[in-house]
């Protein structure tokens, strides 16, 4: 329990820190937020009017507390470009991004585990080599280029999948079809790193004595792998998986723009182009918080896996 409490305190501190950084970078460092919103070609008067409207005449700390207080009541301010509450914009686009992220996360972990175990089981043989070379390539490929290549193959040439856009949830099958390529691009890139870590970790654990003990007790290679080696190999994997999921979540920002999917990432991109300060600020905070919370949850998985940690050893 002390471990859990310490981690929770850390989580709150990190989230607060992130809100501070986001606020400082978006509001304080660049100077006049009105200038950021209206651009350099705006008039002095227009900027002054906007400043008053946004409450920018108040001191910085008061504005920060105001913003933070609003967020705690799920009020992210009003979008300057869309003239609607930012919360409304976010809720409208959240389901798509969430679906994309969750699908990609689950498939990434499944694929990486399978590939890592496959390669480790064929250590030094052809299967291992091919997996390692492909994963080395996967790490080097930008997800957006892989997306373009996938579109070229499946949308332009084979014409079996849409090249982009989203038909809405009213047609579930079409909606899923439009997610196939984005998810594939995300998964292939992220699973490459994780598969390598899985393989290394499994090989490390397989050398250990308890894997040999299990074999000496007549367990089949499959049982040794899935019952003894993999659970132990998970421990170092989990940390990397956390980082991969963070990469995956920010990856959706780019991918949504590649496929013109109306999710949070696309919204962020449009908000940046529209100089929609509050929306950008809210989205950056949201994405960063999701990453931090996912990592926190991943840390909690450690507690489930490893009894040694449950006793409060950190």
């Amino acid at each position: 329990m002390p471990f859990l409490l310490r981690r929770l305190a850390g989580l709150v501190a990190t989230l607060t820190g992130i809100s501070l950084v986001v606020f400082a970078v978006m509001n304080v460092l660049p100077g006049d937020p009105a200038l950021t919103i209206l651009g350099l070609d705006s008039t002095e008067d227009a900027r002054a009017a906007l400043s008053a409207q946004l409450g920018l005449d108040q001191p910085v700390w008061a504005r920060y507390l105001d913003w933070l207080g609003g967020i705690l009541q799920s009020d992210f301010g009003t979008s300057y470009a869309y003239r609607v509450p930012v919360t409304e914009l976010i809720l409208e686009r959240l389901p798509l991004t969430l679906t994309l992220g969750l699908l990609a996360s689950i498939l990434t972990i499944a694929l990486a585990t399978a590939l890592g175990v496959f390669a480790a089981a064929r250590h030094g043989k052809a299967g291992d080599w091919v997996t390692m070379i492909l994963s080395q390539l996967g790490i080097a490929i930008p997800a957006f280029w892989l997306s373009i290549l996938l579109v070229l193959l499946f949308a332009v040439t084979l014409r079996v999948l849409p090249s982009g856009g989203f038909p809405g949830w009213a047609e579930p099958l079409e909606a899923l079809k439009s997610l196939v390529l984005p998810v594939t691009a995300l998964v292939l890139v992220q699973a490459s790193v994780l598969a390598r870590v899985t393989r290394a970790s499994v090989l490390e654990v397989a050398k250990l004595d308890y894997a040999r003990t299990a074999r000496a007790l007549g367990l089949s290679p499959r049982r040794v792998m899935w019952g003894h080696v993999l659970p132990n190999a998970l421990v170092p994997m989990v940390t990397v998986a956390g980082m991969q999921l963070a990469g995956l979540i920010t990856g959706t920002i780019v991918i949504e723009n590649v496929f013109f999917l109306p999710g949070l990432g696309r919204l962020m991109f449009q908000a940046i182009n529209n100089r929609d300060l509050y929306t950008v600020q809210a989205l950056v905070l949201l994405f960063a918080s999701i990453v931090v919370i996912v990592n926190f949850l991943v840390d909690m998985i450690y507690l489930l896996i490893d009894p040694r940690l449950r006793e409060g050893r950190s």
Binding site: I253, F287, V291, N295
Partner: peptide, 8 residues
Amino acid sequence: SFAFPALL
């Protein structure tokens, strides 16, 4: 700083 995703 690690908690803040690089690309974001």
